[in-house]
Nucleic acid binder design. Sequence first.
DNA 1: GCCTGTTTATTAGACT
DNA 2: AGTCTAATAAACAGGC
Length: 270
Amino acid sequence: MSPCSSFRPALEENSGVHRRKYKRYAKGTYVGLLAYILQDSPNKMLTFRQIMERLGVFVAGDRKGLENNIRVCLSSNKCFVKVPVDPDYPNARRNFWKVEESCITPKMLRRHFKDMTDMLPSLEPQCQVKCDTGAALDPPSPASISKENTQPVKFSSSFSIESLLKNDHSAHLRIPPVQDRGGLNDLRLTPAAGSSVCWERSVYSFTQSYYMYSSAAAGLSGIPAVRKSLSAAHEHALYPSQLSSYHSQTVQSRISASPPLPHDLRYLRW
DNA sequence: GCCTGTTTATTAGACT
DNA sequence: AGTCTAATAAACAGGC
């Protein structure tokens, strides 16, 4: 069974009755994908346009619908927060979006990064323990909400986004070229590999799993949208740590090569 | 007019 | 089976 074998066009033959034009993705959610894209950006925040540019690599088809979906996702999920592009002149319509990690619950981790935990059996028990404690999973009671707000949940597990990305960015391990990689089933965890490899392979597989159906493709023509083939530049932009040439760079050079901080960019047009 | 962000309603898959 | 929640569509407001 391929990772995406359960993807099927959602349109009914006699559609028009159902509003849904997309099949729910077999793996992954917008939240998970957005979180990854944001966290993988140099400053861990992006404008909406930048988000869409990165998403554009994954998705072909109806951009309007996708934009709408992403907007809703960003607006309705508290784990995504806005940062004014220009702090001096806050504009409600010109913001960076970033991930508010303190708002990511174990439940969200399990739900939105489920595919990665599936590939990370060594981490699953950790997450499971947290999830099974109940307190962290149960819907917050009114009384607990204020407490939760004042005591943001910070995850120090190796599967927290922070930890995972930390591992990712500190990785010096060489990863085989994309074309040489196996699918999800080929993942093998070795003691020597460590979580860095786990994470990198997981991110690869995770993003690979994002074959999306656009409403234009699935809804109008009945043809599923397919993931665009990635150019080398795109591959590098999205999976930088996968390219061996990338690994020839030191972490320091990666940092120095990063764009300036957001406040230096605030007068640029996006 | 376009872009961005918010809100609401609906649907359907996942979860309990 | 009932509930929860992500995905989707649409309408609207406000800034550029």
